[in-house]
């Protein structure tokens, strides 16, 4: 990871935000079924002001994850989110590719 890569790397961004004293949540794709836009292990990091970096889908469910992240930051309780076409939430936020993903969302620290 060189400096250029670092600026795009969600986990490096999370560490920088943490060092700046910002409260951070980390979302991680832990399981996928069917055609999912981002592979298992992909990260989206979110701060308490709703700034975010990285991705867990092709932009389809990030909005929902960012909203949930505020709850996780406040409560300090990690949670598992699931998105997919079979799910009513997913119909709203929409994984248009027809896949299904599970996203683990946790607070940093």
């Amino acid at each position: 990871m060189d400096d250029a890569t670092d600026t795009l790397d969600p986990l490096a961004v999370a560490e920088r935000w943490m060092d700046d004293g910002r409260t951070v949540a980390v979302a991680t794709v832990v399981e996928t079924w069917g055609s999912a836009p981002r592979p298992v292990g992909s990260h989206l990091v979110i701060d308490a002001d709703g700034n975010f970096h990285g991705s867990v889908s092709g932009g389809c469910v990030e909005g929902a994850v960012i909203t949930e992240a505020q709850d996780v930051i406040d409560s300090c309780e990690p949670r598992m989110l699931e998105f997919g076409v079979a799910d009513e939430t997913a119909w709203r936020v929409g994984l248009s590719c027809g896949g299904r993903i599970r996203v683990y969302l946790e607070r940093l620290g």
């Binding site: 990871m1 986990l11 490096a12 999370a14 943490m18 683990y104 940093l108 620290g109």
Partner: peptide, 24 residues
């Protein structure tokens, strides 16, 4: 996620060493 884990993970990745981040 433990902040120490994040620092360790990023340090290992910068040093080009393979690591597994394990979450219960």
């Amino acid at each position: 996620m433990d902040p120490h884990c994040l620092r360790k993970l990023n340090a290992e990745r910068r040093a080009r060493r393979a690591v597994v981040s394990l979450t219960d």
